[in-house]
Design a protein around this nucleic acid. Structure first.
Lengths: 235, 235
DNA sequence: CGATTACATATTGCATGTAATTTTATCGCC
DNA sequence: GGCGATAAAATTACATGCAATATGTAATCG
């Protein structure tokens, strides 16, 4: 294999090679240049990035730990494949974590947080109106990012970020990402109002309902997808 | 330093050295032979375990990912010190995760799960009656372990296990572990009944209340501790 | 005498060597 | 042509080498 899947341009030899290898590989996975099932070869990446195998090995270990890859003894690591059932259990987790984030964010909410969310919502509104799916995804992630930052619980943030990465991988594997944009927008509106309202318990429930609905729509989409495949098979 | 803090007896040279080093070091931390603040020296551990530095380095990285140690560039890793505020935020997380575990366990609960919990409760009851704090801690952990196993969500289990490790470290750093044994026992009773009752939402709330009360008692204990110290200073 | 600098020592971070194991390629055979 | 055994190549897991950096200590200076 002579074609490079990793972008070595951002690597500067000399300091923090593990971090840099980690970012490059992670980016390759999340952008699907490394699809689920792809092998993460230590010597291959070391060649591509023009660094030694040690930092690459460490970077891959980190990726594994984040749940983006899994390895078996003496056979190396591959990008994880996340099925629908696993995706559901990820959303089970996400539901309670986003709920907690909303609750804590409501406790801590000052005007800047609310402003950030309002700004996000406006941009999100425009994106949805013009049917820009990519930007919708981006702003949706940013919305939840604001809330978890406002929550001020580092472990919570890490866990949510980790789930987000796995969700991104699963999305390609199983279900399409379009659809439900309007609903998401409306639910974000409700959540912003709840946070402004100042009752942590209410905000938590609104956030949880939001994620629950995402999970359900995911389930439906997967069923539809399945049905679609069945139909094609029947042809 | 010639005294060994790690127990190398369980290491067999030849396969899976990273896992073995990881377990030994983790055990040393959780058993407090390596107190918070202790340095985790790669060459020192390699000497003690009589293996090379590579697997030791990897094992320590894993310990870091788990939140049991933290490292700064070119200065190596030290066992984390977890203050009261951080412990509180750990319990915030734990609250919603144990709630989720109880909810999922209730969905999945068969007679064996309930039986396990009942058996645990009996043993726990005996331990509390005889004032055995160590055994109380052990059975308390086992109780929650049964529930999260029954929940059948791997990521959830990992997250809870990780928090449990950090809680163990924090307990020494900040607050005593005795106290609240009777309350814990009573609340476990309520939770078992809720799981048997079969309503997932109820079980979730009971579990969350249980953890919330633990967090609050923790807070109180810390305050009392603080007060105690102040009084001694006044003498 | 305390603070600062220079040096010695130890450790981290990365590079590379090597045996064991797995994967891939080659071959003979049906 | 397809299939199984064998050999070659590549990869993993671990060991070790080495330069850069940090820590501790002694010498120097104000």
């Amino acid at each position: 294999m002579t074609q490079h899947t990793l972008d070595a341009s951002s690597i500067t030899r000399g300091d923090g090679l593990v971090d840099k290898a980690y970012k490059v590989i992670r980016d390759a996975i999340l952008s699907r240049r490394l699809a689920p099932g792809s092998r993460l070869s230590v010597p291959e990446f070391a060649r591509q990035l023009d660094i030694s195998r040690s930092p690459v090995r460490e970077a891959i270990a980190r990726i594994e730990y984040e749940g983006l890859a899994e390895s078996t003894s003496h056979r190396g690591a591959v990008v994880v494949q996340i099925g629908l059932d696993e995706l559901i259990s990820i959303y089970d987790l996400r539901e309670v974590l986003e709920g907690l984030a909303a609750r804590l964010a409501t406790r801590a909410a000052d005007t800047t947080v609310i402003d950030d969310l309002e700004q996000n919502w406006q941009a999100h509104h425009d994106a949805v109106e013009s049917g820009d799916v990519e930007r919708h995804m981006e702003l949706d992630a940013a919305f939840h990012g604001h809330i978890r930052d406002a929550a001020g619980n580092l472990r919570l943030s890490d866990n949510l970020r980790q789930l987000q990465g796995q969700i991104r991988i699963a999305m390609t594997t199983t279900v399409a990402r379009r659809g439900g944009m309007d609903a998401a927008l409306a639910e974000h509106r409700t959540l912003i109002d709840a946070i402004r309202g100042g009752d942590p318990a209410v905000a938590e429930n609104v956030a949880r309902d939001h994620i629950t609905r995402l999970r359900e729509s995911l389930h439906d989409a997967a069923l539809a997808d399945h049905h679609h495949i069945d139909e094609r098979h029947e042809t």
